[in-house]
Lab assay of single mutants.
Amino acid sequence: MPSETPQAEVGPTGCPHRSGPHSAKGSLEKGSPEDKEAKEPLWIRPDAPSRCTWQLGRPASESPHHHTAPAKSPKILPDILKKIGDTPMVRINKIGKKFGLKCELLAKCEFFNAGGSVKDRISLRMIEDAERDGTLKPGDTIIEPTSGNTGIGLALAAAVRGYRCIIVMPEKMSSEKVDVLRALGAEIVRTPTNARFDSPESHVGVAWRLKNEIPNSHILDQYRNASNPLAHYDTTADEILQQCDGKLDMLVASVGTGGTITGIARKLKEKCPGCRIIGVDPEGSILAEPEELNQTEQTTYEVEGIGYDFIPTVLDRTVVDKWFKSNDEEAFTFARMLIAQEGLLCGGSAGSTVAVAVKAAQELQEGQRCVVILPDSVRNYMTKFLSDRWMLQKGFLKEEDLTEKKPWWWHLRVQELGLSAPLTVLPTITCGHTIEILREKGFDQAPVVDEAGVILGMVTLGNMLSSLLAGKVQPSDQVGKVIYKQFKQIRLTDTLGRLSHILEMDHFALVV
């Protein structure tokens, strides 16, 4: 994948999101292997301009796509893939009243899908469409860049269908997702969380590099694949309309690839034109409109599966009536509230959605109805927002919020430890010299600072030695090549209790 991002070429006709291997024109390309080798690009942008032909009021008969309808489940399912879809609609009884809503608040519980998330729908649909058009064949390999849930859905379907599955996901995604993927037989590649989507090191860039190296491999490409919004247009939206008897006044959905909100909203605009569509985008993402909503100094966020630093091709923002931004604290607070007060075992993005819903639905009156999409299960986040310690460490809970008995030293300040200034190293000294210094002084790690004293990161003896043994660096290389740029900081005025929580999850903390 090139470091400079080429513009994806656009073909003359058809839909841009065809499933299957992508040609340089962004659509299915038939021909000899030699032709494909000559024409197939190194990668295709996940934010390529959409060429979708959908228009409100256009006859369904003019759609270029294969459409399906929700099917009634048999008493005995032939395999677990038949437990994807037909998820329950559940009334939220307490939270709406707590925040003064007059309307009825309903939750579409997508964590009841077989793999635990709304992404099971698009995973199965992308595979079925690729099999139907002859792209996927027995023994082929599926590769997908994902925040985890699409990966789980694909790995689940691949396990049943017999495909090899490789999932490329950023490091910030939970260990629970990784464990589930491994249990399903998927191979996992992790990428830096802070890598831009168009960087060769991003999950998108690495996935395309693997595709170019592995024979008979395919990126189904949830960011561009029409099967993504079509899955929701054909099934999720129809289920909502049936469950609500066609009567709903507002739908609120958090947005990642945009397939969920695009597919549902398009069908609702056709069948229930008075329904307002509300999009939820986390602070630090750029999906919301108008652009002024996205202006923030924050560039990272903890909530998973929603928000991006690019506009995915499948996201149709014209069908969203209003956007709201959400933050991590309210997302996790509301997710825990949904679990504790409503018994809905949902993930953090569901918290984002409901946090926005109780604001947006203030305009609705008694007798009206708001539906929220709860995308995934708490299963993926047992060591994250479900953990009091994690919430404390991230600053989303305060010590006084917890009532468990603490040891005698818990409320003492870090400054009472009488710490001395640490050994520091410059980023320009060599790895070999740094190892000598650390061994001589008896230290395992040291902060790396520039000549102005600005902290650049941390270097550890173990990481340097393993990097040297693996051949990633040489003793003569500058130590700046092996620094940890993500590390926890703590102030002298913070409590030892807070430091204790940090050290339970990290090997060190830097006192500043």
Results as ranks from 00 to 15, higher is better:
Ser23Lys: 09
Glu37Gly: 11
Met173Arg: 06
Arg18Gln: 13
Ser174Phe: 01
Glu187Leu: 06
Ser63Pro: 11
Thr193Val: 14
Val168Asp: 03
Asp238Trp: 09
Cys165Met: 06
Ala155Tyr: 06
Val204Ser: 04
Ser175Cys: 09
Lys172Glu: 06
Leu42Ser: 02
Gly31Thr: 08
Thr150Lys: 04
Ile214Asp: 05
Leu42Gln: 11
His17Glu: 10
Pro74Thr: 14
Glu29Tyr: 12
Ile240Tyr: 01
Val255Trp: 02
Ile84Glu: 07
Met169Val: 06
Ile127Glu: 05
Gly26Ser: 10
Gly20Arg: 12
Ile143Asp: 04
Ile92Glu: 04
Leu156Gln: 01
Glu104Leu: 05
Ala60Ser: 10
Glu104Asp: 14
Glu187Val: 06
Pro33His: 08
Trp54Thr: 06
Arg182Glu: 07
Pro21His: 09
Asp198His: 06
Ile95Leu: 04
Asp79Arg: 09
Ala8Leu: 14
Gln243Cys: 06
Pro70Asp: 10
Ser19Arg: 04
Gly256Cys: 00
Ser175Met: 01
Asp245Ala: 02
Lys25Arg: 09
Lys30Pro: 09
Gln7His: 14
Asp234Leu: 15
Phe99Arg: 07
Gly148Gln: 01
Gly148Asp: 02
Cys165Asn: 02
Ile264Met: 14
Cys52Met: 03
Thr141Gln: 07
Asn216Val: 02
Ile80Glu: 05
Arg196Gly: 10
Leu105Met: 01
Arg182Gly: 11
Pro2Cys: 12
Val180Ile: 05
Gly96Asp: 11
Leu154Cys: 02
Asn93His: 06
Met250Tyr: 04
Leu136Lys: 00
His65Ile: 04
Ala157Thr: 13
Gln7Cys: 13
Lys172Ala: 01
Thr13Cys: 04
Thr150Met: 04
Gly11Asp: 04
Thr150Asn: 01
Lys119Leu: 03
Asn225Cys: 00
Leu210Ala: 03
Ser23Pro: 10
Pro59Glu: 10
Ser175His: 11
Phe112Met: 10
Phe197Asp: 07
His22Val: 13
Cys272Val: 13
Leu251Gln: 03
Thr141His: 07
Thr257Cys: 03
Ala69Lys: 09
Gly139Ala: 02
Phe111Met: 05
Glu187Ile: 09
Pro138Cys: 09
Ile84His: 07
Arg58Asp: 12
Ile92His: 05
Asp245Glu: 12
Leu156His: 00
Gly259Gln: 01
